[in-house]
C-alpha cells in the first residue's frame, strides 16, 4: 500500500525529522569495479545513501565521477560488485529475472539522456508499453497513456512517432512513459543533457511539477546546475565516493552567495 501524495507531502513538510520519512531506495556500501582488460577500474568505492519518498534528489558530479554508474545501481540496471541496494525494501541482488523485470516495470520509471523511445511506435504506444508489460488491459492502458501525455502537454501528439518530435517533446514522452505504472521512484539520467537551455528548463519544470503535484519521487543524475534550484537534496559524487549530501536550505544560501 502506497501512501497518497498528500500524505507524503505532510510527511515531508510537516516534520523535519528525517527518521519519519519513508525510505524508497537505500544503497549500502556499494562498490562497482569495471574490468578494463587487465586493469580493474573502480567506478564506485563504497557509496551509501537513502532516498526518501516524495523527494527530488539530484546526483551531481563531473563526468567520470561514477554518477551514471550509481544511477544504474539504484535503478536495478546493473549489479554492484559488492554492497547492497534496496528498492522499496527489496534487496535487488536477491531477485531472479522475473522479479527484476517486475520491479523495473512497476516500481521504477526511467528517463534517459537520449530519450530511448521505441522509434517505430507512436507516442501513445510508447507510453502504453510498460502498461502492456504490466498486464493492463489495452483499453485501460490507452486511456491512461493519453491522460499522461496530456499531463506532460502532448495531448495533441498521441499519434506522432518520436522522430517527428523535437528533443524536448521526446523527453516529455519519456517522462510520461516513466510514470506509466505509477512507480515508487522516477530515475532520470542526465534528462537535460541532450537538450538546449530553454527546453532543458522546461523538462526540469515538468519534473518539479510532477514531484509537487503528484508526489513522485525523483532521482536525477546530472551536472546541470539548473537542477539545484528544484532539488530537495543534492548528493555530490566525486571519484566514486559520496562527497557530501546537502539539504535544500543549505543550497539556497550557497546559490545566493554565487549570485
Amino acid at each position: 500500500m502506497q501512501p497518497s501524495a498528500a500524505a507524503i507531502q505532510d510527511l515531508l513538510y510537516g516534520m523535519d525529522d528525517a527518521s519519519a520519512r519513508r525510505t524508497v531506495v537505500s544503497a549500502r556500501e556499494v562498490w562497482k569495479v569495471y574490468q578494463m582488460g587487465a586493469v580493474e577500474t573502480p567506478a564506485l568505492r563504497g557509496v551509501s545513501l537513502d532516498i526518501f519518498a516524495g523527494e527530488y534528489m539530484s546526483i551531481m558530479g563531473p563526468s567520470g565521477s561514477g554518477k551514471s554508474t550509481l544511477f544504474n545501481m539504484i535503478g536495478g540496471l546493473d549489479k554492484p560488485t559488492s554492497g547492497k541496494v534496496f528498492i522499496d525494501e527489496v534487496d535487488i541482488a536477491q531477485l531472479d529475472a522475473f522479479e527484476l523485470a517486475w520491479l523495473r516495470c512497476r516500481k521504477i520509471g526511467y528517463i534517459f539522456q537520449t530519450f530511448n523511445l521505441i522509434p517505430v511506435m507512436t507516442c501513445l504506444e510508447n507510453v502504453m508499453l510498460p502498461m502492456v508489460f504490466a498486464g493492463l488491459p489495452a483499453d485501460d492502458a490507452r486511456d491512461k497513456a493519453a491522460g499522461l501525455l496530456r499531463l506532460v502537454g502532448l495531448g495533441e501528439r498521441l499519434k506522432h512517432k518520436p522522430p517527428q518530435l523535437s528533443g524536448g517533446q521526446q523527453q516529455r514522452v519519456a517522462c510520461a512513459r516513466a510514470l506509466a505504472n505509477d512507480p515508487a521512484i522516477v530515475l532520470a539520467d542526465e534528462p537535460t543533457g541532450n537538450l538546449d537551455l530553454k527546453t532543458g528548463e522546461e523538462i526540469i519544470d515538468l519534473l518539479h511539477r510532477l514531484k509537487a503535484e503528484r508526489g513522485v519521487t525523483i532521482v536525477s543524475a546530472t551536472h546541470d546546475m539548473k537542477m539545484l534550484a528544484v532539488s530537495d537534496r543534492v548528493v555530490w559524487i566525486r571519484d566514486g565516493l559520496c562527497d557530501r549530501i546537502e539539504e535544500r536550505k543549505a543550497l539556497d544560501i550557497k546559490v545566493g552567495e554565487i549570485r
Binding site: A101, W102, Y110, N116, L117, A134
Partner: peptide, 16 residues
C-alpha cells in the same frame, strides 16, 4: 540493442 535495453528497462522479460 538499445531498443532491447530500453524494453528491459520498461519491464520486458528476456523471453519476451
Amino acid at each position: 540493442f538499445r531498443e532491447i535495453g530500453t524494453m528491459k528497462c520498461l519491464g520486458a522479460l528476456s523471453g519476451f
